[in-house]
């Protein structure tokens, strides 16, 4: 079986968020990047399936040169092959544009299962995976916290509100966008990282995939026009001083609340 995992590289969770020159996104130069945390769970799930039997794990990422690092990490963790869609023309694409690129890859590769993250930690769109499933013409589910396979059917628990799960079955080929926490993500071993250097990493452009006219700012139906810190409403009253002074002030408040 073949599993395609969609990986996005995003700013590191502790990266400084400075706004860029034209005020439409963050300053991405000179900050650290990492694999979107939700996608690490998707990759781990693919590797667990591979460990349990025969599977080829293909990781796919769209993004600039820096994305090579994310794909090498994924190969080091145990993925077999990587496709890096690296094309400046894709910049400015909306979620649908990204989904069209991934759909073109999926149509060439014909995976039995596509795994993705529930959402990206930077944009928080949670849009690409269901779009990709629609464009490929396969069933999907989102926020999966458990994935089980038997024959051509996947049974997934998807997280809904109030601590409950909804159980759904999907006929393969299908797409599952995973919620965080569904497994414990492995680290790349030194041996894995060495082996990864010999694994194939193909670089493609939108034109290679036949979607050049469907990507980029020109084709995008949605664009970010402004990004800004949320307006400060009536925010918390700040307590300042040394730790002991702060503690004393908090104790006074907790006494006022009648809790001491």
């Amino acid at each position: 079986m073949k599993i395609m995992v969609c990986l996005k590289q995003v700013p590191h969770q502790d990266a400084r968020l400075d706004i860029n020159g034209d005020g439409t996104w963050i300053q991405e130069d000179n900050i650290k990047f990492e694999i979107n945390s939700y996608d690490t769970y998707a990759l781990e799930e693919a590797l667990l399936i591979k460990d349990a039997g025969e599977a080829e794990v293909l990781v796919v990422s769209i993004g600039p040169d820096r994305v090579t690092q994310a794909l090498r990490t994924a190969l080091g963790m145990g993925a077999d092959r990587a496709i890096h869609v690296n094309d400046p023309e894709i910049q400015g694409s909306d979620s649908l544009g990204m989904a069209k690129v991934l759909a073109a890859v999926a149509k060439e590769e014909n995976p039995d299962l596509i795994l993705a993250g529930l959402m990206s930690e930077d944009a928080n769109y949670a849009a690409v995976p269901p779009m990709l499933a629609e464009l490929v013409g396969i069933p999907h589910t989102t926020a999966a916290v458990k994935v089980e396979r038997s024959n051509g059917t996947l049974t997934c628990d998807r997280e809904i509100e109030g601590g409950a799960n909804e159980v759904v079955t999907l006929e393969a080929p299908c797409l599952v966008a995973v919620q965080s926490g569904l497994n414990q993500v492995r680290y790349a071993s030194l041996k894995g990282i060495m082996a990864a250097k010999k694994k194939p990493l193909d670089v493609k452009t939108a034109a290679d995939l036949g979607v050049a006219d469907q990507v980029g700012a020109g084709a995008a139906k949605v664009s970010v026009t402004q990004i800004a810190p949320p307006p400060k409403g009536d925010t918390a009253e700040l307590v300042e001083g040394s730790p002991d002074e702060i503690a004393a002030k908090l104790v006074t408040k907790i006494k006022e609340l009648g809790l001491l």
Binding site: L96, A127, P130, E134, T141, E166
Partner: peptide, 23 residues
């Protein structure tokens, strides 16, 4: 943007070739 809303909405947008904004 509920568990069913976020599941189905992007799919509808792709089918309609529409603009999509979540949450």
């Amino acid at each position: 943007n509920t568990p069913s809303g976020w599941d189905v909405a992007p799919r509808i947008a792709a089918a309609l070739d529409a603009a999509f904004v979540s949450d």
